[in-house]
């Protein structure tokens, strides 16, 4: 083994001065990283969550095709239990309305509000967090005190107040929920910005004369996305829950069925027809579970440290 394998090679063949260097010559590069979507697909429970959510979204999108009639109109006798009539597989409520039609139409509102209000919090949170984290100093102090103001106010109470004042429209409910939950994103983005701001590659960008906006937008922001995406999925779930709570309290558009209002209506019949509460409640649980599973999967797929150990 001690014998030389190759004593010398004419230099012009192997190493042209300043020549092109192949990957083999300069030592093996790091093992090729698995693309994030592949890592996500390996995560079975996350895929199950994604499929469930996809079905819900499809049902919501095609609600008008599946149940063309107004879900709030009386279609049959009151309080038919589930699995009795094939025309109304999940039965009817005290006003004789089709429960299944209500659920499918209700999915539109619940999912729309969940998604939109999460987007509102991500937008406010990223802007506030990025500015506070990048500039630091008094800007950071002011923005963070305001953020803490929102964080210490119970977000459900805040949503109740805003919707009571502004009225239960889609945009008002979305705004109310979004404003209440932006501090989570803001604090996360701020923390990421604070350490990325002093990282070598940002220092390199500064020394090359990059402008502030370019550094914030092109250099730092893309690197903060993985944790923001994961947190957003959790926010969507909690927004759906908050919306359900609001409509349970009657703070929703009375002309549109939502899961929360169905629970609210069924509550009075809890002793005689528990399923009127349990069915939409169960659906909320399933939806939130699905979104949380997706969040877990995203976390593992997007977090390189977890991915390597996986």
């Amino acid at each position: 083994m001690n014998a030389p394998k190759i004593a010398a090679i004419p230099q012009d063949i192997v190493c042209p001065a300043n020549g092109v260097l192949s990957a083999v010559q300069a030592g093996a590069p790091q093992p090729e990283a698995e693309p994030a979507w592949k890592a996500f697909l390996r995560h079975r429970s996350a895929v199950a969550g994604a499929v469930t959510l996809l079905l819900l979204v499809l049902a919501a999108l095609f609600a008008r095709l599946l149940f063309p009639d107004d879900p709030l109109s009386t279609v049959a006798a009151a309080v038919i239990p589930p699995f009795q009539l094939s025309a109304y597989p999940l039965g009817t409520d005290p006003l004789g309305r089709d429960v299944l039609a209500g659920l499918v139409h209700g999915a539109r509102m619940s999912l729309a509000i969940g998604l939109l209000s999460a987007l509102v919090s991500v937008f406010i949170g990223v802007v506030v967090g990025a500015i506070a984290g990048y500039f630091g100093g008094w800007v950071d102090d002011v923005l963070m005190r305001i953020t803490e103001l929102f964080q210490t106010t119970p977000s459900f109470l805040l949503a109740v107040v805003i919707v009571t004042i502004g009225g239960p429209t889609l945009s008002m409910i979305t705004f109310a929920i979004g404003v209440g939950s932006f501090p989570t994103i803001a604090r996360l983005v701020r923390a990421e910005f604070r350490w990325l701001r002093v990282s070598d590659f940002v220092t390199a960008a500064r020394s090359q004369g990059y402008g502030r906006l370019r550094i914030i937008w092109q250099e730092i922001l893309p690197n903060t996305l993985p944790p923001v995406i994961v947190t957003t999925s959790v926010l969507i779930a909690s927004s759906i829950l908050t919306e359900a709570g609001l409509s349970f309290l009657g703070l929703s558009d009375p002309n549109v069925p939502t899961w929360g209002s169905m629970i609210g209506n069924g509550r009075t019949m809890l002793q005689d027809a528990w399923y009127l509460t349990a069915i939409p409640g169960g659906l909320i649980i399933v939806t939130i579970l699905a979104i949380n599973l997706i969040g877990d999967g995203l976390n593992e797929a997007l977090n390189p440290r977890l991915r390597n150990n996986g």
């Binding site: 394998k5 010398a8 090679i9 230099q11 190493c15 083999v24 010559q25």
Partner: peptide, 17 residues
């Protein structure tokens, strides 16, 4: 520079310019 030849053996080339 080290590299693998076709048989998978490592080979070493020393370049003294």
């Amino acid at each position: 520079r080290s590299y693998r030849d076709s048989s998978g053996q490592y080979q070493f080339a020393l370049n003294q310019r």
